[in-house]
């Protein structure tokens, strides 16, 4: 196990390096001139030249790459160009809000979609199954934006069941007052793709020989479904949750934007709009690393859940 972990971590090195280089060269060659963005519209050429030498932009590319690598590995990205806030602090203060919204979403979308998927997979080809498949196809073709716009308008503005938007410093208040509407809408949107996906996982399992054997030896359907089929189908479901985990840290930027939730997603969006390069670069690089580590964690977890999985 330890050897496996070490090998996997070692294999990550080139990928991490690649992600770091991709971000560097993307901004270096395609992005605008940082000095001009920082200087603003009224900067004189002298001011721009000063900023350029402060940022080390007049050095050769490889020196700049060195400076950049230094900031990657010392976790020191300096300050946000737009607000002057240190980038590290910015992440640390925005993350709690994102997690407060994203974790309930991730949990609920699995818990709600799975029973529905089981039901329609079990009654495959029935009227209920076919109707639900048509509904999910339709639901999938409506933009996420429409759900949020209409949901916020109807439930928040017209019926006033929930606050339209807002956020407080108290996590409990946030969970009880401000997150229900965004969480509900995000879960609603995720239901259609999740039901379809889980249904296909369950159908794969239902077609297996062990299901026939279990039925043949007279096990009640309840036991066949829950103890045999569900347990096996949970593996791809969990794999899918694992894939979605890195996204939890970016947050649903649309949700955060619409409901004014001061999370990471909204911050990234603001950074893109303000050409705030350090913030975008830092989050892209660290999230790449984080998602690789999460992927490794998911692989290891599989070994614990399913003894058939061999770690190579």
């Amino acid at each position: 196990m330890a050897g496996y972990l070490l090998r996997r971590l070692w294999q990550m090195v080139p990928t991490v390096l690649g992600a770091v280089l991709l971000v560097f060269f993307l901004f270096k060659f395609f992005g605008g001139d940082p000095a001009e963005i920082l200087g603003g519209l009224n900067a004189t050429p002298e001011q721009i030249a000063t900023i350029r030498s402060e940022l080390g932009l007049d050095e050769p590319v490889w020196v700049q790459l060195g400076l950049y690598l230094q900031s990657v590995f010392t976790f020191d990205w300096g300050e946000s160009w737009a607000t002057g806030e240190p980038v590290g602090e910015l992440f640390a203060t925005r993350l709690p809000a994102t997690l407060t919204v994203m974790l309930p979403i991730l949990l609920l979308e699995v818990i709600i979609a799975l029973p529905i998927a089981m039901w329609v997979a079990y009654r495959r080809g029935s009227l209920v199954d076919r109707t639900l498949m048509v509904i999910t196809t339709l639901a999938l073709s409506i933009s996420f934006l429409v759900y949020i716009i209409v949901g916020q308008y109807l439930l928040g503005f017209q019926l006033a069941w929930f606050p339209v938007q807002g956020w407080s410093d108290n996590t409990l208040t946030n969970l009880t007052t401000y997150t229900p509407l965004p969480v509900m809408l995000a879960v609603l949107v995720a239901l259609a793709p999740n039901i379809r996906l889980y249904r296909s996982f369950l159908l794969d399992e239902l077609g297996n020989d062990y299901v026939r054997t279990a039925r043949a030896k007279g096990l009640p359907e309840r036991v066949v479904l829950f103890r045999h089929v569900l347990r096996n189908a949970l593996i791809p479901v969990l794999a899918n949750v694992g894939l979605a985990l890195p996204g939890v840290f970016v947050g649903s930027f649309l949700i955060e934007q619409f409901f004014s939730i001061p999370g990471l997603g909204r911050e990234v969006l603001l950074a893109v709009n303000r050409s705030d390069y350090p913030v975008i670069q830092a989050i892209a690089v660290y999230l790449a690393m984080l998602s690789m580590i999460i992927n490794l964690g998911v692989d290891v977890m599989f070994r614990l859940v399913d003894p058939r999985v061999v770690l190579k």
Binding site: T15, G247, L287, A288
Partner: peptide, 9 residues
């Protein structure tokens, strides 16, 4: 490398 960075980012 392209897969490592979450799509939306």
């Amino acid at each position: 490398v392209f897969e490592a960075i979450p799509g939306i980012l």
